Simulated scan of single mutants.
Amino acid sequence: MTLWVWIIGASVAAYAVKLLGYLVPRRWMDNERMTRIAGTMTIGLLASLTAVNALGTGQALAIDARLGSLVASAVALLLRAPFLVVVIVGAAVAAGLRLLGWG
């Protein structure tokens, strides 16, 4: 199969899952347990995506400037910096570490 067949197939599958979401009864979504589960899943998925992007290169583990950037951003978040400051701190640390030859 060609790449385009896979791309179109994935798009159709994603759209079908979205449409199936409209068929879920409203009372299920109003349940507090479901709200808690959805919130927890969102946090878990975002954390795993961040870890994979910060530490992964293809199929291998990579320790480079991205890890330093993630740590600096986490410190800025702990200090309750505004989101824009967190992004700038992370970018500056990554740039500085790459300038120093790490990563």
Rank of each mutant, 00 (worst) to 15 (best):
Q59E: 15
Q59Y: 15
S11D: 04
E32T: 03
S73Y: 09
R27G: 03
S11V: 01
A16V: 00
I43Q: 13
I88E: 05
R27P: 01
V89H: 04
V24T: 01
W28G: 01
I37H: 08
T57D: 15
Y22H: 10
L55P: 00
V87L: 12
M1H: 10
W28K: 13
L46R: 01
L67V: 13
Y15M: 11
L49F: 14
L67A: 05
A95M: 12
M34V: 14
A51D: 06
G68P: 06
A72K: 04
L19A: 07
V52N: 15
A10T: 04
L61C: 04
G90Y: 08
G103N: 07
A47L: 13
W6I: 00
R36I: 07
A60S: 15
L79R: 00
S11Y: 12
M41Q: 02
L70K: 03
F83P: 04
M1S: 00
I63D: 13
L20Q: 04
A72E: 11
W6A: 01
A14K: 05
A92Y: 09
A74S: 05
G101N: 13
G90Q: 00
L46K: 02
G44Q: 03
R26K: 09
L19T: 10
G101D: 05
D30Y: 01
R27E: 10
A14C: 05
Q59C: 12
A14F: 06
I8N: 05
V17K: 04
V52K: 15
V87W: 13
S11P: 01
L79D: 08
V12W: 13
G44H: 05
V93E: 05
W28P: 02
T50N: 10
P82K: 12
P82L: 12
V71S: 02
V86T: 04
V24E: 10
A65L: 04
L77K: 12
G39L: 12
V5H: 14
S11F: 02
A60P: 06
L70C: 06
L3C: 02
V24R: 10
A38E: 12
G103D: 09
M29F: 09
L79N: 04
G96N: 07
V75A: 13
L67W: 14
N31Q: 14
T40H: 07
L61G: 06
G9H: 07
V89A: 05
G39R: 14
E32P: 04
V71P: 05
M29Y: 12
M34G: 03
G103I: 05
V75C: 13
S73G: 09
A47S: 09
T42P: 10
L23P: 00
N53I: 06
V75I: 10
G90E: 06
A51R: 02
A16T: 05
G103Y: 13
A91Y: 14
L97Q: 07
L67D: 04
V24M: 03
M29I: 08
V86D: 01
W28R: 00
I7H: 15
S73M: 02
L61R: 08
A47K: 11
L97A: 07
Y22R: 11
G103Q: 15
M29Q: 12
L3E: 07
W28S: 02
S48G: 04
L20N: 01
A10D: 06
K18M: 08
R27A: 01
T40W: 02
V5S: 09
A92T: 08
L99P: 09
L70P: 10
A51P: 06
V24W: 14
A16S: 04
